[in-house]
Design a protein around this nucleic acid. Structure first.
Length: 292
DNA sequence: GTAGGGTTAG
């Protein structure tokens, strides 16, 4: 079941305690170590190759059984760790365990849970967690709505995501680049790049002319599209073969000195390869290598 | 100092 080992502990701690948050964990580390060591037989040599997720699960299980109960903030951090490893179903399971032991979530925990359900293709549950917010006396935040929006996009319900966007506006939350990024990506993914631009433009109360005008307009409003937003749009244009627009956007990134990252490069190289433009793809590959 | 946005291939 679990392959917690004597050798796994230091590694586990390094993994879970990357920052100055060390102090918050200190009361639990020794107990955790004892728990892990006593619940499992000593490992064979092969046990060095353990799965990190299982270690995280082991830690979570230990903590959930502790008295006094650990802080929900700490449990939420561990859940977040599992999510970052993309083990969504596992995180959902852990949450269920936690709740069944009478440990109450707080707003961030619920946001994490919603994210998990979205990725697991269970938007029905994600939405019912929304109602739990009220039940537990918390208010859904802009993060909650953005997470729901992302989940809807992931599950092919782009129109519902746009409705959520309207709710964000109605709630009076101010826009930020993450909301834009989520929505733009969702729209571009569903092959509706034009709609994405129109929608963006509408957000900014302007007229749709072309992508360049749009970005200058956004800048004027104090919201600068970042590399994620650009990358999503480039993905959309590449996918419909509109190289001119893609190139224009790429040019903007360079002009604005926004760092291209591995996502951007991969998207463009992938598109070039699919268009059999291998020479250009190769050049970009070299650029990537040059930039380390 | 806890939560939300971007890719491909196999």
């Amino acid at each position: 079941m679990l392959c917690a080992t004597r050798y796994a502990i230091p590694k586990l701690h390094r993994f879970l305690l990357p920052s100055s948050n060390l102090l918050a964990f200190m009361p639990y580390t020794n107990r955790t170590r004892l728990c892990l060591l006593h619940s499992q037989p000593l490992p064979s040599r092969d046990a060095y190759k353990f799965d990190n997720v299982e270690d995280v699960v082991a830690l979570f299980n230990c903590m959930v059984d502790m008295h006094p109960q650990p802080l929900i903030v700490e449990l939420t951090k561990i859940l977040g760790t599992v999510v970052k490893m993309k083990y969504y179903a596992t995180a959902i399971y852990l949450y269920t365990q936690m709740e069944s032991k009478g440990i109450l979530p707080f707003s961030v925990t619920l946001n994490v849970l919603i994210n998990c359900y979205g990725h697991a293709g269970q938007m029905g549950f994600a939405l019912s967690v929304m109602s739990k917010f009220v039940k537990w006396g918390f208010k859904p935040s802009v993060v909650t709505f953005t997470t729901i929006m992302k989940g809807l996009c992931l599950n092919g319900k782009i129109l519902d995501a746009l409705d959520i966007y309207d709710k964000i506006v109605a709630k009076g939350f101010w826009f930020d680049e993450v909301i834009y990024g989520t929505l733009i990506n969702g729209l571009c993914k569903s092959g509706k790049t034009r709609v994405a631009l129109q929608r963006l433009w509408k957000m900014e109360d302007g007229l749709l002319d072309d992508a360049l005008d749009l970005y200058f307009n956004m800048l004027d409003r104090g919201i600068s599209p970042d590399v994620v937003t650009y990358t999503s749009l480039i993905y959309g244009f590449c996918h419909v073969g509109q190289w001119k627009e893609a190139r224009l956007l790429l040019n903007e990134i360079v002009v604005k000195d926004i760092g291209l990252d591995v996502y951007t490069f991969n998207i463009i190289i992938d598109a070039l390869c699919k268009e059999k433009m291998l020479l250009q793809a190769h050049i970009l590959c070299d650029v990537m290598i040059l930039r380390g």
